[in-house]
Every structure is written in structure tokens, then in C-alpha cells.
């Protein structure tokens, strides 16, 4: 009985290994949670996963911090992050879907070099772009400006998004578009009414990727924004830790607050990550 299954010992070993892997993966997260709810600011790495005292003090500290002029920073910085990430997502999706569709469906001079250049641009480390982008933003008077960040994030996310979306568009049968053309649809109608609804999973992933690019990015934001009220949340977080110590508790509480929107977004987008959208369309 159960000759094809693993033995009891094998099962125990596999489960033990998996449980260990989960603990290793989860420990940093649990540690951050413990620190955030401890009410303390010192790093106190203990094995016990819950705090000695439960307090929301660190969250209060993070969300009520003020500038010297008395302006509460958190709402401003949250607003900055939301605007940057949302606009990056919307702008990025608009550019990436249209570009990817054109690269997938139309044949025009420069198509292959364009795809190749997108790929090449991904091979350089992001920090290499820092100085040229800084100069460009300076010339455009977009330093310390959310629009500058939005432009930079959208355009740097585009190559990956275009490649991913193009790969997906390539799998949508051409017959569907030809059928729509005969039905009387213009290229724009085909794109919005046929292609985009079918590319929902790829667009959801692209949206998540773009949002996370805008939401989590630190280096560019820290370089281009030099006023505290212009910071995005990742830059604000960094202010809580310094070379010789820091407010680790507030930093942990801030990290949790910063993570929540991404988790929520993933939760709402995951229902679009479904397979079989094309089922029934053409004979497989």
C-alpha cells in the first residue's frame, strides 16, 4: 500500500526541511513586527518572536513626526509616494502596453533594434544612470519635483514591462484581430476591446511591477529630492537610521506601514492572475 508514495520518514524529513525554510524566510519579517510593536528603539535580537511589551508608540512616532516648521511629515510623504507610484503605474502601463502591442503586431523599420535596445538598457546597473538622469532632470527643472520621479520611474520600468507584455501579446491569436477587423473594428477598438481584456494577467503583473518600482525605489528618490516634505516613504524611512545608531523601532513600524499598500495591491491584482483567458477562442 502506498508503494508509489514516499515513506513516512521521507515525509517527515521533507516537512522538517520546509518548516525550517519557512522559519528562515519569515524570521526577518517576524523580527520587524516584534520590533515595531515593542515600543522600543534599540535593536534587541532575541529568538522569542513576540515583544516583551506591546505598544503602538513606534507607529505613532513614525506617523506624527514634524519638521522644524511644525509640518507633519507622514501625510505629505505618503501623498508623495502614492502620487509617484500611482502615476508611474498608470503612465508606465499606458506606454508599455501600446509599445508592446506595436512591437508584437506591426512590422516597421527599427523594430528589432528597438527591442534589442530595451534589452541592453536592462544590462546596466541602475546607479550608472544616476548622474545622466540627474543632469537631465536638472536641465528640465524637475529636481525636487514628483513629476521628475514619475518620468524616471516610468521610463526605467518600461523595457522590462514591454518585453513581458510583448511576450504575452504574441500568444494572442492573430485570427481574433482579423476577425475583429472584418467585424468593423478599428485598430484602437481592437486594442481596447479585444487585446487588453485578454492581456489582463500580464497587465496585472506589469502594474504590480511598476507600482513597486515607484513605491519602493530609494536611491534615485534620495538623490533627486532634497527637501524632507518632498521625500517619498522609503527615503523618509532611511532618516530613522544613521551611522551611529537610530530609531530602529520607528523604522520597523514605518517599514510595516510602507509594506501594507503593496500587499493590498497584490491582493486585489491577484484575481487577474488567472490562466485560460483564451480558452474557447480558437481551436487549441
Amino acid at each position: 500500500m502506498g508503494s508509489r508514495g514516499s515513506t513516512q520518514l521521507e515525509r517527515i524529513f521533507k516537512h522538517a526541511l520546509l518548516i525550517f525554510a519557512v522559519i528562515v524566510t519569515m524570521f526577518p519579517v517576524i523580527f520587524v513586527l516584534k520590533l515595531a510593536f515593542s515600543g522600543q528603539q534599540q535593536l534587541n535580537i532575541g529568538l522569542v518572536p513576540w515583544p516583551d511589551d506591546f505598544s503602538l508608540g513606534n507607529f505613532a512616532d513614525f506617523t506624527t513626526r514634524k519638521t522644524a516648521e511644525g509640518v507633519t511629515l507622514f501625510p505629505r510623504q505618503l501623498f508623495n509616494s502614492v502620487v509617484v507610484a500611482t502615476c508611474t503605474t498608470l503612465f508606465g502601463i499606458f506606454l508599455a502596453t501600446t509599445a508592446a502591442y506595436a512591437l508584437s503586431r506591426f512590422r516597421f523599420p527599427g523594430r528589432k533594434p528597438a527591442l534589442f535596445m530595451f534589452l541592453v538598457s536592462q544590462m546596466f546597473p541602475g546607479t550608472l544612470m544616476l548622474i545622466p538622469i540627474y543632469v537631465i532632470l536638472d536641465r528640465l527643472h524637475l529636481l525636487n519635483n514628483l513629476l521628475g520621479l514619475i518620468l524616471v520611474y516610468s521610463t526605467t520600468a518600461i523595457p522590462f514591462c514591454v518585453w513581458m507584455l510583448k511576450g504575452y501579446f504574441d500568444t494572442i491569436p492573430l485570427d481574433l484581430e482579423e476577425s475583429a477587423r472584418i467585424d468593423g473594428a478599428s485598430p484602437i477598438v481592437i486594442f481596447y476591446k479585444i487585446i487588453l481584456p485578454l492581456a489582463r494577467p500580464a497587465i496585472a503583473v506589469t502594474a504590480l511591477f511598476s507600482f513597486m518600482t515607484g513605491w519602493n525605489e530609494f536611491i534615485l528618490a534620495a538623490t533627486f529630492m532634497d527637501k524632507e516634505v518632498s521625500y517619498t516613504l522609503p527615503v523618509a524611512l532611511q532618516r530613522y537610521v544613521g551611522e551611529y545608531g537610530g530609531s530602529w523601532g520607528s523604522f520597523a513600524a514605518g517599514s510595516i506601514i510602507v509594506s501594507v499598500p503593496v500587499v493590498l495591491l497584490f491582493y486585489f491584482l491577484q484575481r487577474n492572475l488567472v490562466s485560460g483567458l483564451m480558452a474557447g477562442s480558437v481551436k487549441g
Binding site: E178, S179, A180, I182, D183, L277, G280, S281, V282
Partner: peptide, 28 residues
């Protein structure tokens, strides 16, 4: 194609998978 007043039935159906049969029929 849309101005030629023709209709075409494709080898592999080419139905719009995200639309109901009714919407497939009335799309044009």
C-alpha cells in the same frame, strides 16, 4: 475589410473568449 461588406468564418473559430455568445454575435 470592414468596408467590403463581407463576413468570414475562420478555421479555428476566432471567437472573442472574454465575451458571451450574445456579445460575440452582436459585436459587429
Amino acid at each position: 475589410p470592414k468596408d467590403r461588406d463581407i463576413a468570414m468564418v475562420f478555421q479555428n473559430y476566432a471567437l472573442y473568449p472574454h465575451m458571451t455568445v450574445r456579445d460575440n454575435l452582436n459585436f459587429s
